[in-house]
């Protein structure tokens, strides 16, 4: 499973993070805030086994609908 955040989703002419803070609140192992409170994916977005639930929760709680997950990406490099 892989997380993808679309920073330009519906947010005007220039990419801007809107900073709703719901991702790092609902999925603190997968997202973290930067110094202005915008959420960033930790690492390369690969969801470690066992944290799929957190990833789905982050998607379901993002008001900007900016987060998608690729359920089929099985992390081809292996565990």
């Amino acid at each position: 499973m892989l997380i993808d955040v679309d920073l330009e989703s519906q947010c005007g002419e220039r990419p801007i993070r809107v900073g709703q803070a719901r991702c790092y609140f609902t999925a603190p192992d997968l997202f973290e805030p930067d110094d202005i409170g915008d959420g960033y994916v930790i690492g390369d977005g690969t969801v470690p086994p066992g944290q799929e639930g957190q990833a789905r929760l982050a998607v379901a709680n993002c008001p900007e609908r900016a987060i998608t997950i690729d359920e089929d990406d099985d992390d081809e490099e292996g565990d």
């Binding site: 947010c11 005007g12 709703q20 803070a21 409170g37 379901a60 993002c62 008001p63 900007e64």
Partner: peptide
Amino acid sequence: RAENRHAAFGLGIHRCAGSHLAR
């Protein structure tokens, strides 16, 4: 409620800048 995509702080570029303070 676990899944809660509420828009209380607005949506898009003008969403509340003070939401961390408000929370």
